[in-house]
Simulated assay, not measured.
Amino acid sequence: MKTVVLLTTGGTIASKRNPKTGLLISGALTGKELSSMCELPNDLTVDVQSLFQISSNQMTFQLLLELKEKIEDVFKDKAVDGIVVTHGTDTLEETAYFLDLTIADERPVVVTGSQRAPTEIGSDAFLNIRQAILAASNDHLKGIGTTVLFNEKILSARYIKKVHASNLDGFRVNGYGNLGTVDREEVHLYQRPVQRELHSNVVELPSVDIIPTYLGGDGRFIRAAVTSGAKGIVIEGAGRGHVPPLAVDEIRNAINQGVVVLLTTRADEGLVKVVYEFEGSVEHLLQQGVLLGRDYDSKKARIKLATLLAAKYNKEEIQMLFNQ
């Protein structure tokens, strides 16, 4: 009989209603309380362990490291076939990608959550947990890194996005498709990532900020990030990655002070790429020393940049790894 460890961290999937206010208390249920409400697979051993009881807006870099260490500790037991992490949906995509980058073990790690609380009508909590456990026990998921199970879909941690604030179909992978599905009890894997990126030697994550750009924007938030001690800045540019000319001086100043600046696009799909020649264009920013984030969205780029800085890669190596 296969064994799956269910690590619970809180979130909507572990919430219950405050009888006085009628509002949900995120993370109020322990792992044991949550699992007792589920119809878990009978042909698997499921070991339930509560790690955190928080709403996912409380997740921090330090808690990510604690979760990583817990997963590595669980995998010391060779009898464990896979791990499921339940998580709030607000920051689920960031946590899943961090685990994908840093967990070296080949056994499956599957992250799931829910858009509705367990006590709400039409809750997706129980099906997502059950199917995540089935996915984590499936040998076909070995060696592909951390995945996300949501609404019967097996999704890539690198590309997954929360695309709806409340709808049950709240997570998707635009442009790349699902890795597979779970149809009732059957796990189907349709595609695997071409390569897996791994940086497990991470013990402390530096401060990295995301700065969006917009019509008429300037560099004051970039300056604030540098002043507050950011080691990296992810710029969310428009289109191919363009920024307003008023922001360029502060970008240059940040780089001159040793801050690594990485350029992404606010578009849902497409590459940051040199196409145009004007002030604030990708070509112009490259001349200032900005790195290009290809098709990474800003949240994933931040997680990856912080991980690479923690792993002591230099700027040339960081650019090479973003090019993969």
Rank of each mutant, 00 (worst) to 15 (best):
T12Q: 02
H284A: 07
H188W: 15
I13K: 03
F126L: 12
R17K: 08
T86E: 07
I54N: 10
I13P: 01
I13R: 03
Q287L: 06
L305Y: 10
V248L: 09
L308N: 11
K162Y: 08
K304R: 15
V148P: 04
V208R: 10
Q53M: 15
I251D: 00
N18K: 13
A104L: 05
A125I: 13
E120F: 07
A135G: 13
V243P: 04
L305Q: 09
K32Y: 15
R196A: 08
V275A: 09
I318Y: 13
L127Q: 14
G293N: 11
Q62F: 04
T147R: 05
R17V: 07
A267S: 11
L23W: 02
Y214D: 12
G180P: 01
L168Q: 03
Q53P: 13
Y214L: 14
G22C: 12
I144D: 02
V203R: 03
E204N: 09
E186T: 10
N128A: 12
N256C: 01
A79E: 09
E186C: 05
D90T: 13
D77E: 15
L215R: 06
Y190V: 11
S15P: 04
F322L: 14
G180S: 06
E39Y: 14
G170F: 02
D43S: 05
R223W: 05
K273G: 06
L6A: 10
T95M: 06
V4P: 14
H188C: 12
L134D: 01
L64P: 06
D43K: 04
N128T: 11
Y159P: 04
A254P: 07
K299N: 06
Q58W: 03
V243G: 02
E197V: 11
T119G: 00
K231G: 14
T213E: 00
I71T: 08
A14H: 12
S166Q: 06
A28D: 12
T119C: 05
R17H: 03
L141W: 05
K76G: 13
K2F: 04
V4T: 15
E120Q: 10
V290P: 00
V194N: 08
E72M: 14
G280Q: 07
A310L: 06
A135S: 14
